[in-house]
């Protein structure tokens, strides 16, 4: 099994004075690793650090076989590491659902028309094509999450980073999200408190000590 992400001795900045130490871990091909731990223990910070949004104070981070430490190392990861934010509202740029899903592909260099077609195909693969022309602020919580996922999947990621993906969803929306996620067949790093999610999706658990 090849290693996709490997972290050892990571320390992240937490405000001006504090630092946060994280346990060593590795994510392998085909794995869905669940990060468990109390709030404020750094689950979100870790996911954000993998994309270079939270600077590393110490430690080694390897993603896709390369050492990552400075901003320039992280830029090519934005896309291949698909991050689903904790609050989908942060992630939806609109104005309509199809525009939003096309945002990533356009950043990858596709023109407006091709990005739009790709967005529609991605929405169809999640059975969301009926939402395509809807303004993003008119979506329900469950729909927002799935549209945010479509936005991530449209960039053809190699790994999904999911930050509390089932947060605030009812049972039916959760089931639908789990099905969509499992159908992607992608390796995942999942930060969650949700026991059902951990049981349904997780292949391994990493607990952050309190």
């Amino acid at each position: 099994m090849s290693v996709l992400i490997q972290a050892s001795g990571l320390r992240l900045a937490r405000g001006p004075q504090r630092q946060l130490g994280l346990p060593d871990f590795a994510l392998h091909e085909g794995e869905r690793l669940c990060l468990l731990g109390p709030s404020g223990r750094g689950k979100t910070s870790l996911l954000h650090a993998l994309l270079g949004f939270v600077p590393l104070q110490a430690g080694r981070l390897q993603v896709f076989g390369c050492e990552r430490s400075v901003e320039a190392d992280f830029v090519p990861l934005r896309g291949p590491l698909g991050l689903l934010f904790q609050d989908p509202v942060d992630q939806l740029f609109g104005p309509t659902v199809v525009d939003d899903v096309a945002f990533g592909p356009r950043n990858q260099g596709l023109d407006r028309q091709r990005a739009g077609q790709l967005a529609l195909r991605t929405l169809a693969s999640l059975q969301l094509e009926h939402l395509a022309e809807r303004p993003v602020q008119q979506l329900s919580g469950g729909e927002q999450r799935l549209v945010a996922l479509a936005g991530v999947l449209a960039m053809n990621p190699r790994v999904l980073l999911l930050d509390e993906p089932s947060n605030g969803l009812d049972q039916a929306s959760c089931e639908r999200l789990f099905t969509c996620l499992l159908e992607t067949g992608l390796p995942m790093l999942i930060a969650s408190h949700d026991q059902t999610l951990v049981q349904r999706l997780g292949t391994r658990i990493l607990t952050l000590p309190a």
């Binding site: 994309l51 949004f53 934005r78 896309g79 934010f85 740029f93 990533g104 960039m155």
Partner: peptide, 26 residues
Amino acid sequence: QQVQRAMQARGFRPRCNWRTLEVLAL
């Protein structure tokens, strides 16, 4: 900062072109 991060996470990099202006306005 959140909006900026979410845009970067989906591969947006400011350049000197029309699309960058559009995205900044957004």
